[in-house]
């Protein structure tokens, strides 16, 4: 079997795997598998999956460089779009099910009462341009380097998402701290790699001279 066809098989498999959290949630919702406060479960479970998908998406590049599995890049867009998908469900849960379109309350929440709401909102909004420009056409339209620049917004989106989680919890900061740590490692790797890259380039230049 050629390498190409093997990857072709993996794509739908990963796609279906990414749907598991939402299918599982729907199953629990309609079979009484949620807690006494189902809204809270829907909100919390979609929320945590956004962060997971963002972290997984951000792991693709370091993994490719460390284990040299460059074909992983084929899944990056899909994983990022799933982060956006869970973000949308999470946001809709808040606006629709939790606040029931009470925009007065939502406004107060965001700007007056709950600072963690605004960080969550920022995290979601930052993902919108990334979802829109995720197509091949948009890469061509923007040009590779500009497109890449724009898509670095995912760093800020994830950071805002982690802060949102950290501010949300009452005292149990362990899980938000774990996500903050993962994000730090992933960003540090990028910084370190960029530094190495620049250094090797300058030595190459020296050698060339």
């Amino acid at each position: 079997m050629s390498k190409f066809s093997r990857w072709w098989i993996f794509k739908p498999v990963v796609f279906l795997a990414c749907l598991i959290p939402i299918v599982w949630l729907l199953f629990d919702t309609f079979t009484g598998g949620l807690s006494a406060n189902p809204l809270e479960d829907i909100r919390d479970r979609t929320g945590i999956w956004i962060l997971r998908f963002l972290i997984i998406t951000l792991s693709i590049t370091p993994l490719r460089r460390i284990i040299g599995w460059s074909s992983l890049i084929r899944f990056r867009r899909m994983l990022g779009l799933f982060a956006f998908f869970y973000g949308f469900v999470h946001f809709a849960t808040y606006v629709w099910l939790d606040q029931y379109f009470d925009f007065d309350a939502i406004f107060k929440d965001m700007f007056l009462k709950r600072p963690f709401i605004i960080t969550g909102f920022i995290s979601f909004v930052l993902l919108i341009p990334l979802a829109i420009t995720s197509t091949r056409k948009w890469i061509v339209r923007l040009g590779g380097s500009r497109w890449q620049m724009l898509h670095r917004l995912i760093y800020f989106s994830t950071a805002a998402g982690v802060l949102h989680y950290y501010w949300r919890v009452k005292a149990d900061i362990q899980r938000p701290v774990v996500y903050a740590l993962l994000l730090t490692i992933l960003l540090a790797f990028r910084g370190w790699h960029a530094l190495q890259h620049r250094r090797s380039q300058s030595t190459a230049e020296v050698k060339a001279v």
């Binding site: 006494a36 406060n37 809204l39 309350a105 107060k108 929440d109 009462k113 709950r114 600072p115 963690f116 501010w167 949300r168």
Partner: peptide
């Protein structure tokens, strides 16, 4: 400071 107390959701 982090949420409104004006309303509540009765479980159920």
């Amino acid at each position: 400071p982090r949420w409104s107390q004006a309303q509540e959701r009765r479980i159920g």
